[in-house]
Amino acid sequence: MLTFTIRRLLMAIPTLLFISLIIFLILDLAPSDPTANLPLTIPPDVRADIRASLGLDEPIHIRFALWLQQFFVNEPLNLFEHWTGWNFGGEDRTRVISWQTRSPVVDIIAQRMPQTLWVVGTAYIVGILIALPIGIYSAYRQYSIFDQAGTFITMVGFSIPPFFSGVLVIVIFAVQLQWFPSVYDTTHVVIGWDSFVIQIKQMILPVMVLALQITSQISRFMRASMLDNLTQDYVRTARAKGLKESTVVLVHVLRNSMIPVITVIALGVPQVFGGAIITEQVFKVNGLGHLLIGAIQSGDLPTVQTLTFIFAVLIVLFNLIADVLYGILDPRIRYD
């Protein structure tokens, strides 16, 4: 297992380099210009100077190499210095700079990350915690009223896009009932119990919208996996041993059913970091999804590039984690 993990990690390096090259080349095709937003009175030669100072007049392979150095060497070193307080003479290291804000992209991402993790991460956990029991019980009582209702609700959850369900919950809970705020206040700081309650309140609506989607997907998956296993011969063996029904279902069947479900859950984690773009827009959550949309709209290529690449890293990483989990959970899988 360890050799497998190490081999996979090493294999991830060329994969990620290739992905970063593709992202770089595609974004290079975009007609974005970092000076486009500057006043028209700035003469063309000054604009050219600005471009040169950003290194944009170099040939593409030099720019790619530069980006690689900035992203893979300078930024990690910077982070490291930041965490440990040590200094490797980093003052003259160039960083990936946002065209829009002129500050380092990684700093912006670090600033936005908590918003996304709070809202989307909570929704993911809540969604899973609701989904698992629903999936298990629906499968155990297949075609019961509970199962039919569950099927209906998950279908609804699947098919209603968040820009509709988001507005719907805002109209109901924020406008009509006035229970929760309609806009997520990013600047809110939790300092005590009261401010914590406010934080929870403002999270409820976006979390609700996202959790509905997540619950719908995972509970369907859980149900299907349970149904696959409930009819297996080993379940009859477990009953023939005189085990309690709860042991049969929650130990024997569940342990087998969780294998594919856990890998699906792991594969879904990058989406949590990717942010829920639409939901973040609807509730004005100032997270990564919001950042990405803003960067795309203003042609801020370094930000788009960095975010996209970070998502790519997370996807590759969690694919690996899913595989490793599969190997741990299923004794039949051998990775050597």
């Binding site: 297996q232 011969d233 080993y234 009859r236 063996t237 477990a238 009953r239 023939a240 041993k241 005189g242 085990l243 309690k244 024997h252 342990r255 087998n256 294998i259 959970l329 299923d330 004794p331 039949r332």
Partner: peptide, 25 residues
Amino acid sequence: LRKVRGARIGFVFQDPMTSLNPVFS
């Protein structure tokens, strides 16, 4: 019934390949 099954009446099933739970020792 559960006190009878597995304790007073033992059952061996048709297909040994699938009758054991694959994820438990």
